[in-house]
Structures are given as structure tokens and as C-alpha cells.
């Protein structure tokens, strides 16, 4: 589903990604962990071209994202993204957030878009919050609206960039619950997060990134219980202490 090869990313003199390969199969859930500044978020953002790699190739669902002839806006409908800080549109209702791209990009009528939007909000358990503005919702609810906004477009892949890092601990569960349901529906997912419990239960593969490279990857049990590299061990023991 995702084939990224030899991804390099430089911001001026800063070399953030130093040749990362990432293959994700259909229906697979890949977890990316690593210290801050390791390049994991930049890597994720290369997968829908919010970041343009300095070199390398990114193919998602058969679409070459770095080919200048690619209709990027069409391709992005198939790649949902959820951000750490939710990034809901504060001047619109929850339903308005979910339906904007349906109407403006997918070309649905308002009635069609509203129907799809209500269904998407129901999937994340917020059917009765459709008319609320983001400011009237808790962080967990806002993040679920953000997930609804992405899944309403029926993406083939979902990217999650630290979806629970900005949440109070008691609100994390509701977001992880929605992600687990999405996983069970067969969605292909790439998740940057430190939710190790969730990774253990749901991930097919965990990748540990450090200093712009993938240090090691494998099934969650291997990465968390018996990592091969000292750097991975150090990082795992650090986040387990929290």
C-alpha cells in the first residue's frame, strides 16, 4: 500500500531523514517510535507530501506522490491524516469540519455530504455533537472529529501523528478506542505515537527511529521485550519509566 524508498529530507544544513525505507502492506498497522527530533513526524508527513523529500520516492496506493504530473489533491483524499493538535477548523461545527472536503474536493452536494458526515461522526461516537464547535468539545472529542474528518473521505491509508500526545490522560482511551475500531475494519495505518499498550495490542510492526534512520523494526513483542540495539533498549526503558 505504501512504498517509500531512500527518503532523505534536509532543512538547510539540518539533515532530518537520512535514507529511510518504509513498506506498509494493505491492512497493516505500523507503529513508529523514537525520541523527539528523530525524524519520525517528518517521515510521516512525507507520506502525504506535506513535506517534500529532498530525494527518494513515495508511492501510495499505486500513486507516485513525487511525480509532478500527479494530481496531489486527488491523491490526498485517499490518505487521511490526524494531527497531534487536532487542527479542527474553529469557525465551523463538527459537521462542517467533516463535510468541507466532501463538498469542495469530492464534489458532493450538501445533502450527500451531510449524510456522509453524520455517518462518520457516528463512527467515532459523536453523532449528537454534530452542531458543536471545536471550542465546545473536549480534546478527546476534538481528536475524534478530526478522525471523522479524515475517514469521511474513505481513505485507503490513515496517518496518525502523535494523536494522543496533546490529550489529558483520561481522554486518551476514547481516541485509542476509535483507532482500534478503525484497525478492526481493516484500515491500513501508520501511527507515530508512544502509546505502547496500544502498540502491543494492535500493531503488526513497530519501527524505532533515531537520528533520521530506522534503527530496527519487528513485531511489538520483539521491539519492546527484546530489542537488538542498545539505542532501542535505552529508549524503551526511558518511556516505560513514565
Amino acid at each position: 500500500m505504501i512504498q517509500a524508498k531512500g527518503i532523505h529530507k534536509q532543512f538547510g544544513a539540518l539533515h532530518v531523514l537520512k535514507g529511510v525505507d518504509l513498506d506498509v502492506a494493505e491492512r497493516e498497522l505500523v507503529f513508529i517510535i523514537g525520541p523527539s527530533g528523530s525524524g519520525k513526524s517528518t517521515m510521516l508527513r512525507c507520506l502525504n507530501r506535506l513535506e517534500v523529500p529532498t530525494s527518494g520516492s513515495v508511492v501510495v496506493d499505486g500513486i507516485d506522490l513525487l511525480d509532478p504530473r500527479t494530481d496531489l489533491n486527488h491523491a490526498r483524499q485517499r490518505i487521511g491524516m490526524v494531527f497531534q493538535s487536532f487542527n479542527l477548523y474553529p469557525h465551523m461545527t463538527a459537521l462542517g469540519n467533516v463535510t468541507l472536503a466532501l463538498r469542495k474536493v469530492a464534489g458532493k452536494s450538501r445533502a450527500e455530504a451531510d449524510e456522509i458526515g453524520h455517518a462518520a461522526l457516528a463512527r467515532v461516537g459523536l453523532a449528537e455533537r454534530a452542531d458543536h464547535r471545536p471550542g465546545q468539545l473536549s480534546g478527546g472529542q476534538q481528536q475524534r472529529v478530526a478522525i471523522a474528518r479524515a475517514i469521511a473521505l474513505e481513505p485507503r491509508v490513515m496517518l496518525f501523528d502523535e494523536p494522543t500526545s496533546a490529550l489529558d490522560p483520561e481522554l486518551v482511551g476514547s481516541v485509542l478506542g476509535v483507532m482500534r475500531a478503525l484497525r478492526e475494519s481493516g484500515m491500513t495505518m501508520v501511527v507515530v505515537s508512544h502509546e505502547m499498550g496500544f502498540a502491543r495490542a494492535a500493531a503488526d510492526r513497530v519501527m524505532f527511529m533515531d537520528d533520521g534512520l530506522i534503527v530496527e523494526q519487528g513485531p511489538p513483542a520483539q521491539i519492546f521485550e527484546a530489542p537488538l540495539h542498545a539505542r532501542t533498549r535505552g529508549f524503551i526503558s526511558q518511556i516505560q519509566r513514565h
Binding site: G80, N87, V105
Partner: peptide, 10 residues
């Protein structure tokens, strides 16, 4: 805000 909008294809 712009990133979220662009990520949905706007």
C-alpha cells in the same frame, strides 16, 4: 489549519 485543509485535498 492549512496543513489540515491540504491533507484532505483542498
Amino acid at each position: 489549519q492549512i496543513e489540515a485543509a491540504r491533507s484532505t485535498g483542498l
